[in-house]
Amino acid sequence: MTQTFTLGRAIRLTLLSLGALIFLAPYIFMISTAGKGQSEIFTSSLSLIPTQFFYLENFAKAFGRVSMGTLLWNGVVVCGLIFVFQVVIAIPCAYAMAKLKFGAARLLMALVMLGLLVPIHATSLPLYVAFDSAALLNSYTALVAPFSISVFAIFLFLQFFRAMPDDLIHAARLDGMSELGIVMRVIVPNAWPAITAFAIFSVVAHWNDLYWPLIVVSNQAYATPPLGLLFFRAAEAGDDYGALMAATLIITLPLVAAFLLAQKRFVEGITMTGLKG
């Protein structure tokens, strides 16, 4: 019995380790190749440690061709603005739907459920035409506005608020708080788990989004990280994989670092918001 147990475990650990190696291989090669010179990349791609370190040169190239700082800054601004708008708009709405009686609640619920079905890819054509005719292409407005409303946020907060006891709100009302006061001083402080989970979901989704930025932005000054990397690839005519990997590394790092630092929250957030991928 103990024999099969150890054998089973050996197989299990081997499988897991092999899989992990395959899953991590791209990262290993990314880090290794970012430090290799052009000639070494062409001759010996399998050796992991560069014979000569070209990290400085490759990173210099990456920073030189495209303004990495601008890209990352744009990513932060766009994701930050989107998140703030989404939360500020969704929380009062979800509160009204969960705890107040009004005629439009059912209609609103129907709109939210419908909205969950519709990704940006389905609405992008008319939105593009509209932003084009308003001369708003190549702007933060174009990048942020369509995502200022997140029906998913409403849905998530709605579930969360419904589980909050009504007595909490009744007590706040008896204490003389206005409804907006209740939202700010009672609901929000108690909704942090949902807000952080949504923050992770929202930032991951919009940091990674390529489709919409690709449509509305052609000016490098407003490029988000994925779009910027696409520009960088276009600018890089040959196969300068060293520089390309360096650029890739820079752009991947912020979110990966955030994930590694706050792993537990990430996993919780993904689990909680697992709904809409």
Binding site: G19, A20, F23, L24, P26, Y27, V204, W207, N208, L210, P225, P226, L229, L230, T248, I251, T252, L255, V256, A258, F259, F266, V267, I270
Partner: peptide, 12 residues
């Protein structure tokens, strides 16, 4: 290890 790709920029 298995989750890392989800948190990484897909284009990159």
């Amino acid at each position: 290890a298995y989750f890392l790709p989800v948190a990484s920029l897909l284009v990159a």
